[in-house]
Amino acid sequence: MATITNFENLEIWKKSRELCQKIFISLIQNPNCSQNIKNQIDRSSASVMDNIAEGFEREGNREFINFLSMSKGSCGEVRSQLVRAFDRNFINVNEFNDLKNDLTDLSKMISGFMKYLKSIDHNGNKFQRP
């Protein structure tokens, strides 16, 4: 089993970073989008990647899984905000579907990673003996 030493090497973190950038381009830079939606979706999409990073840095699988759960919840929050942005014509159907599909894929990846962490014997660096 390869050891990941930095959260920036995690595929789920890389994917969440890409999604933040796509949301920035589609909505936050969009002058027609309401400031309220911009602020909310910026915070919740950032929460996805930030919770992955924070959980990883805790160095314990149980805490990591908890933060991944919060990250997964933020994926749902972003999807809900995308629906609102679409309903208000701030993004077109192609942008909406592309972002929604990416978020659904990321949510599945996070679930799979949580399942993996629950299945391994190693509890994280926090619990290694010196």
Results as ranks from 00 to 15, higher is better:
37 I>Y: 03
121 D>A: 14
46 A>V: 06
27 L>G: 05
104 T>R: 09
42 D>S: 09
28 I>W: 05
37 I>D: 10
113 F>I: 00
71 S>D: 01
35 Q>D: 14
58 R>P: 07
40 Q>N: 11
28 I>E: 13
86 F>C: 06
33 C>V: 14
52 I>T: 02
110 I>K: 01
115 K>V: 06
27 L>C: 10
78 V>R: 00
10 L>D: 10
18 E>L: 09
81 Q>D: 00
18 E>D: 12
120 I>D: 01
79 R>F: 06
47 S>K: 00
44 S>Y: 07
34 S>G: 12
48 V>H: 09
54 E>Q: 07
120 I>M: 01
73 G>V: 01
124 G>N: 02
23 I>F: 03
124 G>L: 04
74 S>I: 00
102 D>N: 14
86 F>G: 04
49 M>N: 07
16 S>M: 05
39 N>C: 12
94 N>R: 14
97 N>V: 14
46 A>I: 05
52 I>Q: 00
80 S>H: 13
129 R>W: 01
7 F>V: 10
93 V>D: 15
65 I>P: 06
60 G>I: 02
57 E>L: 10
20 C>M: 04
63 E>V: 03
69 S>Q: 08
69 S>I: 06
45 S>N: 02
27 L>V: 13
43 R>C: 08
14 K>I: 12
108 K>Q: 12
14 K>E: 09
63 E>F: 01
26 S>W: 00
49 M>I: 12
91 I>G: 05
9 N>Q: 14
47 S>Q: 01
12 I>P: 05
99 L>D: 10
63 E>L: 05
91 I>T: 05
118 K>P: 03
84 R>I: 15
109 M>G: 03
122 H>D: 15
120 I>G: 02
8 E>F: 08
57 E>H: 05
19 L>D: 10
15 K>C: 04
26 S>A: 15
70 M>Y: 11
74 S>P: 01
44 S>T: 14
46 A>Y: 03
55 G>Q: 02
120 I>V: 15
63 E>R: 01
29 Q>E: 15
61 N>G: 07
126 K>N: 02
36 N>W: 13
115 K>D: 12
91 I>C: 09
7 F>Q: 06
92 N>I: 13
97 N>H: 14
129 R>K: 06
74 S>D: 00
52 I>D: 02
98 D>Y: 14
96 F>Y: 15
47 S>F: 03
25 I>R: 07
116 Y>V: 04
20 C>I: 00
70 M>W: 03
126 K>I: 01
68 L>E: 06
125 N>F: 11
31 P>S: 09
28 I>A: 04
43 R>N: 11
32 N>V: 11
64 F>K: 08
80 S>V: 08
49 M>R: 08
21 Q>T: 09
103 L>C: 10
51 N>W: 06
110 I>D: 05
101 N>C: 08
43 R>L: 11
49 M>Q: 12
67 F>Q: 07
54 E>G: 04
42 D>Q: 05
97 N>K: 15
